[in-house]
Amino acid sequence: MNHLLATVITGMVTDENETFYFIQKDGFTFALDKKEGQHKIGDMVKGFVYTDKQQKARLTTVAVETTRTSYGWGLVTDVRRDLGVFLDVGLADKQFLVSLDVLPELKELWPNKGDKLYVHLDVDRKNRIWAVPAGPEVFQKMAGPAYNNMQNQTWPAIVYRLKLTGTFVYLPENNMLGFIHPSERYAEPRLGEVLKARVIGFREVDRTLNLSLKPRSFEMLENDAQMILAYLQSNGGFMTLNDKSSPDDIKATFGISKSQFKKALGGLMKARKIKQDINGTELIEQ
């Protein structure tokens, strides 16, 4: 039976009871739940073969993308530090384990519940079915080329490879690949984590994207700077105040001290959002 498990087969209905049809293939029998549809003895039925939680041989006509020979996405439903992580690949009564042996050595980088892994299935000598994450070559073959016109766009990105050099991700909505350098993140993402990543560059050599998990510079500005930006935007992009203005004028307009005001202006100038002269402060057109 080992060679049939985790594959799609076509077998014959040879028997039934109140709950199941029994499908035979190569001398082995698989139970098909009658809730999936009506059949009669002698019908040929196509379906995915697996063993359920009780290790009973089963066949389902539910479409399953993840097999021995094909990859599909699995949703992490449980994490067992002594075993690995369990994935839902679309079967109502069975989840497949990704062994701890193929997961990162650092358990804090393991997938969490709700994360996603792109896997195929493998079967050991004891007829146990395992989920095996796709390697980088699978993603490289699957993904299409990125384009050099996506700067500052933000997209969902799923982590598929962790390296010291950075994080490799797949953009499911675009079918593209991306890379996040350690300098463009605050902490290392988990394997399978679904991120929101911003495009900051394009690699012509392999047509992939450089991405960042950090906000744009103006998004990191403190509240005082945001208040000044809002004031400028509501006043035609200019104000007579600058870092030489009196503390009283600054306090009257913004309700903050001159030192706070100068710090906020410094951040805005560093982010290239404003410029100053003796007349005041002006927004820089983006």
Rank of each mutant, 00 (worst) to 15 (best):
A146C: 08
K244P: 00
I129D: 04
G47F: 00
N223M: 10
M176W: 08
R68N: 03
A143C: 10
A134T: 10
K163L: 06
R185G: 02
S70T: 13
K263Y: 06
I228E: 07
T19K: 12
R125L: 14
H3D: 13
T208S: 11
R128H: 09
L4Q: 14
D224H: 15
T165P: 03
Q151M: 13
K270A: 11
K258G: 02
V64L: 00
D26S: 14
T14V: 15
N210M: 03
I180G: 03
H3V: 05
K116I: 00
A157K: 15
L268P: 08
G84K: 00
H181Q: 15
E18A: 14
A157L: 05
M176H: 13
G166I: 02
D115M: 03
D101M: 04
N149V: 12
T165K: 08
A157Y: 08
T208A: 02
L106Y: 11
H120D: 01
Y170I: 04
T61K: 09
L109N: 06
L229K: 03
D277A: 11
S212W: 08
H3G: 01
G42D: 11
K116E: 11
W73V: 00
A264T: 03
I228G: 05
Q140H: 08
K251P: 01
A146G: 15
P111E: 06
W73I: 00
Y231W: 14
I278V: 11
T208L: 00
E108Q: 13
I9A: 01
K251G: 07
V169N: 04
Q233D: 08
P145Q: 04
V169M: 13
L171V: 12
R216W: 10
F86E: 14
D26H: 05
R198K: 11
T51W: 02
A271T: 03
V64F: 03
L241P: 07
R216Y: 09
Q233Y: 12
G90W: 15
V76Y: 06
L283G: 12
K113V: 10
V13P: 10
K214A: 05
L59F: 05
K270I: 00
S217P: 06
L283E: 01
Q55F: 14
Y186P: 06
D243W: 07
V123P: 13
L283A: 09
D224Y: 14
V8I: 14
Y118I: 01
Q233H: 08
I256M: 15
K56Y: 06
V159D: 13
A92E: 14
F96G: 01
F86Q: 00
H181E: 12
V85H: 00
A134Q: 01
V85E: 07
G72N: 09
R58A: 08
L209W: 03
H3F: 02
N210Q: 04
F28W: 09
V159W: 04
V45A: 05
F30R: 08
L232A: 08
L106F: 11
D93P: 03
E36D: 08
R185E: 15
Q276H: 01
Y147T: 14
Q38N: 13
K107R: 13
M142K: 15
L103V: 03
G236R: 07
D224E: 15
G11C: 07
G27Q: 07
F202G: 02
L75Y: 07
G144T: 02
R68H: 06
A187C: 00
V62M: 07
L211W: 07
Y170E: 12
E188W: 03
K53I: 11
G280I: 03
G144Q: 07
L103A: 02
